[in-house]
């Protein structure tokens, strides 16, 4: 059963900057070093502009680092590939394909659809979309569309699943529901998960470790081990303590005036 699903991600001295129109360099990632273990659930948290999404895009292979390198199981990441699945905040389902065709897309492009046809239905079932195979994306609610996007990424059996604020656009109830679903999938498949989020509670609820990042300068502030068993109660004292700790690192705890950044 255990195939060669490793999914170890390492970043070594990664720098990524963008050049402003005036010619000034703006660092999105400044000397980022992080090692993510196979099967680990990691969250990246921090204010806007701290380079979380940039880091995710480097791992996905959609952008290139200016210096340093990101590796998957020791191999340098140069291009996008199916072993690193990606789910955006916006489900980005292909509107011209129905749900089944959307989920099957990865298998079809890789020309393995014929052998793995039944997996499409399995994953549609896994995310609870039975009966919606023939529906088009616009006929689905936000939560359902995001489930379909998840199934579409998972059907490729990626070593790493990259999640860019996957539940950010969902209402609070749907979000909590989806978090449980995601945990279930993660326990089941042991895929390495890297999630960008703005939601401290979400990060604590899901992650093994939380990477706290700061915006200026853009760097890793702290990496926190969440050594709590699962399932985690959102009202447990450890949970609340950890939230206070993270907010302190982010410099939001105990402030009386309006924070410039809302969580």
């Amino acid at each position: 059963m255990v195939k060669d699903i490793n999914g170890k991600i390492e970043a070594l001295h990664v720098h990524k900057y963008f050049i402003k129109p005036e010619g000034e360099k703006v660092y999105a990632l400044n000397d980022v070093n992080v090692a993510i273990k196979p099967g680990e659930f990691i969250s990246l948290i921090g204010p806007s502009g701290c380079g979380k999404t940039t880091f995710l895009r480097l791992v996905a292979g959609l952008d290139k680092a200016n210096s340093g390198e990101v590796t998957l199981d020791g191999e340098k990441i140069v291009n996008a590939g199916y072993e690193r699945g990606l789910v955006f905040q916006d489900p980005t389902l292909f509107p011209w394909l129905n749900i089944k065709e959307n989920v099957a897309y990865g298998l079809k492009t890789r020309k393995v659809y014929k052998d793995k046809k039944n997996e499409v239905n399995e994953f549609i079932h896994l995310v609870g979309l039975d009966g919606f195979e023939k529906s088009y994306p616009h006929q689905l609610s936000g939560g359902m569309a995001q489930r379909a996007a998840l199934a579409r990424a998972l059907v490729n059996h990626p070593k790493v699943l990259l999640l860019d604020e996957p539940f950010g656009a969902l209402d609070a109830f749907t979000r909590m529901n989806m978090q449980d679903e995601l945990l279930k999938i993660w326990k089941d498949r042991k895929t390495t998960m890297i999630m960008v989020t703005h939601d401290v509670d979400e990060a604590i609820y899901l992650s093994d470790r939380i990477v706290v990042m700061s915006a200026r300068p853009a760097k890793i502030e702290d990496i926190i081990d969440v050594d709590m068993g699962r399932p985690r109660g959102r009202d447990m004292p450890e949970f609340l303590n950890m939230r206070t700790k993270i907010l302190q690192i982010l410099d939001f705890a105990g402030k009386r005036e309006e924070p410039e950044y809302m969580i």
Binding site: A60, A80, G81, Y82, L86, F88, D90, Y105, G106, T109
Partner: peptide, 11 residues
């Protein structure tokens, strides 16, 4: 975004 998703799906 469509191209990006498509690329990460192996296209």
């Amino acid at each position: 975004a469509y191209f990006e998703v498509s690329s990460t799906l192996g296209a």
